[in-house]
């Protein structure tokens, strides 16, 4: 831990006010989202506590506002602040799991393609190329559609979350694979890898213990930047109505629901989840940008 606070990374972090701010905002978002069941003022999923009388309350500072519901309520009388916290939770979990999934697939593919080269490399990279020609949202929609067709209707909702994670994750791995392959090609020709080959270590062992640790810095950067993307992708899917089920509304779902009321004057139902989404993605992306610069030896 002491080593970390002494590192160049920490030093460059403390020297960039925007990054520190983004980190604080991101931390608030994450804590607020993860501990939503504990700290949210209301439980928007507790049907018993919902009062239809509370529906369409504007934010607290508007004339008809209620201080119990600081950001107002939606059509069913749910507290928007609590709904956003719970929604952000779903968004974050989906985004995080999707990134982990694409990282695992992408790093493995990139490592194998880059290290083994030849036909294996050509095959894997062509698959990645083909996938890159489809917009990732389209891939996600496709996966989602296929699963919906295959899985019986009753269990749709159970499968919804893993399907969204898989759909977003699978649409993103080529980016990881390409980066890792590129770095692997460089590392593979370095003499420390040759030294390991002279002793006769297996390719698997060399990839794992020598190459992998040395190609992880760019992966960390892409993963961070991709978290923002994955959250947005989930919101898009949910907005289009093919994402997480309405029983577990994510930020995207909230925005979609609120969209119906935008023109009848209840702007807060869609604007606040929208702002929450923007703030969350922006802070994560700014962190990713900083990480990219901080880990790039050329810019240091």
């Amino acid at each position: 831990m002491k080593a970390f606070f002494d590192s160049d990374l920490w030093w460059s972090f403390t020297r960039s006010p925007i990054t520190v701010l983004s980190a604080i905002v991101a931390l608030i978002c994450i804590v607020g989202a993860l501990f939503a069941p504990l700290i949210a003022p209301h439980n928007p999923f507790d049907l018993a506590s919902l009062q239809l009388m509370d529906a369409f309350k504007p934010p607290a500072w508007e004339g008809e506002g209620d201080s119990l519901f600081p950001l107002g309520t939606d059509d069913q009388g749910r507290d928007m602040l609590s709904a956003i916290m719970f929604g952000a939770r779903v968004s974050l979990i989906v985004g995080f799991c999707a990134v982990v999934f694409s990282t695992l697939v992408g790093v493995t593919v990139g490592l194998v393609a880059g290290y083994l080269g030849g036909k294996m490399d050509a095959l894997l990279m062509r698959i990645a190329d083909i996938q890159l020609t489809f917009p990732s949202i389209l891939v996600a929609l496709l996966v989602d559609g296929v699963v919906r067709a295959v899985v019986p209707r009753e269990v749709h909702d159970q499968f919804a979350l893993p399907v969204v994670i898989f759909a977003i994750g699978i649409s993103n791995w080529p980016q990881f694979a390409r980066t890792v392959r590129g770095s692997t090609l460089v590392e593979r020709n370095k003499e420390y890898v040759q030294a390991a080959r002279v002793i006769g270590l297996s390719p698997l062992r060399i990839m794992r213990s020598h190459v992998l640790p040395n190609v992880m810095s760019p992966v960390l950067v892409i993963a961070t930047l991709n978290l923002g993307f994955a959250i947005l992708a989930e919101a898009t899917l949910s907005f289009l109505g093919v994402g997480v089920p309405p029983t577990q509304p994510s930020l995207g779902t909230l925005i979609r629901i609120g969209n119906d009321f935008l023109f009848s004057g209840e702007w807060w139902i869609t604007i606040f989840p929208g702002i929450a989404l923007i703030v969350m993605v922006l802070s994560v992306n700014l962190l990713g940008d900083w990480l990219r610069d901080a880990l790039n030896p050329k810019l240091r």
């Binding site: 370095k190 003499e191 420390y192 040759q194 030294a195 002279v198 002793i199 006769g200 020598h210 640790p213 040395n214």
Partner: peptide
């Protein structure tokens, strides 16, 4: 047999795993 042969490389900055 393999353990009887070894190699020393040119670039002292690339021949040791930095991690």
């Amino acid at each position: 047999q393999r353990s009887r042969m070894q190699m020393i490389f040119q670039d002292p900055y690339a021949s040791l795993n930095p991690r």
